[in-house]
Design a binder for these strands. Structure first.
Lengths: 196, 196
DNA sequence: GTATTTACCGACTAACAGTCGGTTTATCCT
DNA sequence: AGGATAAACCGACTGTTAGTCGGTAAATAC
């Protein structure tokens, strides 16, 4: 590989690593660009050479965290057989992962605020969010739930899940809370199950 | 009334009015305290005499907008007879009110971001959010839906509604989108209806 | 081996939240 | 009344931080 590209990639990664840690622990607003530069062992000017603004750094971090999260969730969902059961399992995992610490801070708290709702939704749809519509479609095809417009229902459910995740994040007894919400979500899904 | 109190109230209101307009149109981050002071026709120091921080100003505005919103929604919900139907109607109204412009900006975008999730939840529960658990409880008492833990279910539904409202806000054809989501929400509620 | 493009540096600027000593206006007390 | 106290208001000032800019070092192109 060309030396220049290596150098660029290494610096970029150093910035991202530093920023991810700082954003995750302190939050977006409380983290300064000087801090990031210092943690990445470069000058501030270099950071701006790689990212146009502080928000751009956050977006890159956000994207990375999202990707990691999706991989984790996919693993949990694949184990289930029924599409609806997979949805429930994936959701439960989503709770667990986002509820605590850095991931939750980046994805649930700062994410929408920093990126703006539009952009957040867009990125989220590319990762986690896109899975729900697909699962619902499959469930309808399989006759598990009544046929109806997919997109609106998917968005409602995504909102429900996100809200629950955030609610979990703010509680001391995460495990108990997560289980509670998972049960409620399951009951919602089960209610949708077409009546025989 | 004592003159001092009048003066205080008048200035406070001037600040709130100015801030509400500016926050609503430009958003929290893009609005400066100097702007607010200028629009309220007072010096910046006076604003800080009434509110400790910029966030405090926002919180007061948020509270005011929330109160107005609840009144509006209550009117729409009261017309319905069935508790579930009232929930659907109230929700539909919530979409319409928050979807466009200032209200949505303050309640849905900046609200959680500025106040932080904990505080947002707290205030929201005092206003709109508190209605959902009560409605669900009533629905269970009336045997309209199966008895189950109220709080988690309420939170899921609140999340769903909020998400839908935000989704509506970002679309050109608000009316159509709102109707779409209202239909999806109704189908969700109807699914919960206890099977006879 | 010279020219050009790319990565990096760090002092500087602009903008903004919040402060503080001072001034004006109302209220209290005798 | 009128002097003392307190509350409302003023606006210049400070500290912090995102973003800039002219310049240097390292790599690549010719």
């Amino acid at each position: 590989m060309a030396k220049q590209a290596e150098r660029r990639a290494a610096t970029s990664e150093a910035i991202l690593t530093a920023a991810r840690r700082l954003f995750g622990t302190q939050g977006f607003a409380a983290t300064t660009m000087d801090e990031i530069a210092e943690a990445a062992r470069i000058a501030k000017g270099a950071v701006y050479h790689h990212f146009k603004t502080k928000e751009a750094v956050f977006e890159a971090v956000f994207d990375q965290v999202s990707r990691d999260l999706v991989v984790e969730i996919d693993g949990a969902a694949r184990a289930e057989k029924d599409v609806l059961a997979a949805m429930v399992a994936g959701t439960q995992h989503y709770f667990a992962a986002t509820a605590k610490g850095p991931t939750g801070q980046i994805i649930l708290r700062d994410g929408p605020a920093v990126l703006g709702w539009e952009r957040w939704r867009e990125i989220d749809a590319r990762h986690f969010g896109g899975k729900l519509p697909r699962a619902l479609s499959a469930a309808m095809d399989a006759g598990l739930i009544a046929r109806q417009p997919v997109e609106p229902l998917a968005r409602l459910l995504l909102g429900a899940v996100t809200e629950a995740a955030v609610a979990c994040a703010g509680r001391a007894d995460i495990a108990r809370a997560g289980a509670e919400y998972a049960r409620a979500f399951k009951s919602l899904i089960e209610a949708l199950r077409a009546r025989a």
